[in-house]
Design a protein around this nucleic acid. Structure first.
Length: 308
DNA sequence: TGCCCCCTGCAG
DNA sequence: CTGCAGGGGGCA
């Protein structure tokens, strides 16, 4: 689920919380969620946290942890104080849906219940790995669908990791321009632009939500074949991608069902989306109805008038 | 390039 | 009950 803006939101949150801490204990509740020998990094210090595409990297001394959240992963840090205060008081924190806190139009969930804030109810049934730090704070890796993983690699392996090596350009880096986008997309001429943009070797970090939004921003129909895109449209797609991703980060990511940031809080980008999750709604620009179709098996939202 | 698969939970 | 979900690897 998490795409670039969600992973970036987590990275920003984690940076201020765990850099400089030492790992005191690691509990693995689901074997497949942790690849490598956890004993190897007991006592190791968190040096740096970075993101590449949808991968989160945590650098230790001679090793790094690579984390992929896949569809339902969460990384939540609970400070030592919050834990002990709750325990002492014996308080079971209540569910307060964010509907209560925000104005009504802002909370809009596409089929499903609002994901409530997670703090105070951890670990839970989807907790797969728990890291405990020397200051008593804990990091919970939750993953309902068990697709995600945490992989321990040596620093030397990092450079040659096959997944990282084959990733396309980072869309928010200055070096990324429309010409690069064009060159990479043209390797998949016969595909629809929507399907091609989901390919992480063409451009990294985009998933279904932000591709739909980027193509709306660019006013390009998602079914358009790559071979039919004009130069002027590449420029619009390039800008549309950047706008969608920046807005995603600005609103703290997208929460459809599972995503929360490192504080256990939801993201609000979908309250501001133009097409994603809005089938049957009126387009905010032209008033025509947003449609949903399937492309390569994935739900695809667009405005048939703006993106004709 | 297009399926099937890894899983779980939820809406219809 | 079936189908669907924001990802992506492996297979033919």
């Amino acid at each position: 689920m998490p795409e670039l803006p969600e992973v970036e939101t987590i990275r920003i949150g984690l940076t201020s919380k765990i850099i400089g801490l030492r790992i005191k204990r690691i509990q693995i509740l689901n074997q497949k969620s942790f690849i490598g020998d956890p004993k190897q990094i007991i006592g190791a210090k968190i040096k740096n946290i970075w993101r590449r595409a949808k991968i989160l990297g945590i650098d230790l001394s001679n090793t790094s942890l690579l984390i992929h959240l896949k569809m339902s992963g969460q990384i939540i840090v609970v400070p030592a104080k919050a834990m002990s205060a709750d325990r002492q008081a014996g308080i079971q924190k209540k569910w307060i849906p964010d509907l209560v806190r925000d104005d009504k139009n802002r909370s809009r969930f596409i089929g499903g219940h609002p994901t409530h804030d997670m703090l105070g109810q951890l670990p839970n049934k989807s907790t797969r790995v728990i890291f405990e730090f020397n200051n008593g704070s804990k990091l919970y890796f939750n993953d309902q669908r068990k697709f995600g993983w945490i992989k321990l690699v040596n620093s030397s392996e990092l450079m040659v990791d096959s997944f990282l090596k084959n990733l396309g350009p980072e869309p928010l880096e200055k070096a990324f321009n429309w010409e690069i986008l064009k060159t990479n997309l043209l390797k998949h001429k016969s595909q629809s632009v929507k399907v091609a943009l989901l390919d992480q070797t063409i451009i990294s970090g985009l998933g279904n939500i932000y591709v739909c939004e980027a193509l709306f921003n660019a006013r390009i129909n998602p079914k358009t074949k790559v071979s039919a895109i004009a130069d002027g449209q590449y420029k619009k797609i390039h800008q549309g991608i950047i706008k969608a991703l920046k807005d995603g980060i600005k609103y703290g990511g997208s929460t459809k069902t599972n995503f929360v940031n490192s504080d256990g809080k939801k993201g609000y980008f979908l309250d501001y989306s133009f097409v994603y999750g809005r089938v049957g709604d009126k387009c905010k620009i032209c008033g025509n109805l947003i449609q949903k179709i399937k492309l390569a098996g994935r739900g695809t939202f667009f405005c048939p008038y703006c993106q004709s």
